[in-house]
Amino acid sequence: MTEHTHFVEIRHAQKSYGALEVLKDISLNVERGQIVGIIGSSGSGKSTLLRAINDLDPLTGGEVWLDGIQVNKSLPHRQYEKHINAMRQQIGMVFQHFNLFPHMTVRENVAMAPKLLKEISKEEANQLAAEQLDHVGMLERIDYYPSQLSGGQKQRVAIARALAMKPKLMLFDEATSALDPELVEEVNQVMKKLAEEHMTMIIVTHEMDFAASVCDRVLFMDKGVVVEEGPPEVVLENPSQKRTREFLRKHIEGAS
């Protein structure tokens, strides 16, 4: 058996839908406390890769390991469900469209999963929710419903909801793509705060400036492969690959 010395280890990830191969033999290591950004055009497979890490989109080949445990190990159905639910508690995820629970208040959104899955009382769960909401600057909206919040506020609550499970790893799937431009910054600030606290994060993003400022490493993906990988100042400013340069040029043109 191979040693697994990295905190997050993706080995030969492969995924196809019939004849369409969306991930082609991708390997990626992330160390504890590292922040890795994944960029690329839509359809490049970057979200699929992210969603494979917590098995939301299961791989058709390859392995995902977190802290020495294989996330997508093959087990009989019932055992696998138990295993994956336990693994997912350790992997927080933030979605482009927030996916807050509209029938619950902000407090309930954050407290629900800890109350249900961890052995803590209702009071402790509510206390935990208040702490996490305070952390993202949303404490004063604790009794609101999601429909009463702005997009940026919703995303901050969604981050608090993920953090309340005390995850080892946070996944961000284009967390600011659905936001009005003036609301992006408040969410970026929260993510920067997490970075300063050494949370391990994998971030799929369209924002090159943000990637440059928080990521330790950036991956550029195209057509299901990692084309280029390295520190942000290299990948984003001095890319060696032609495809990376083209993508960045188009991206800058699109943004301006």
């Binding site: 939301l56 469900e81 639910n85 927080g92 509209p102 629900m112 499970m165």
Partner: peptide, 24 residues
């Protein structure tokens, strides 16, 4: 996305239905 968000937090399918999908 509601089911996905609930599953991502670690809820089982049944728990996600009971707490998130069916009430809505």
């Amino acid at each position: 996305g509601q089911m996905e968000a609930a599953r991502t937090l670690g809820l089982s399918r049944g728990e996600a239905l009971r707490k998130v999908v069916v009430p809505q």
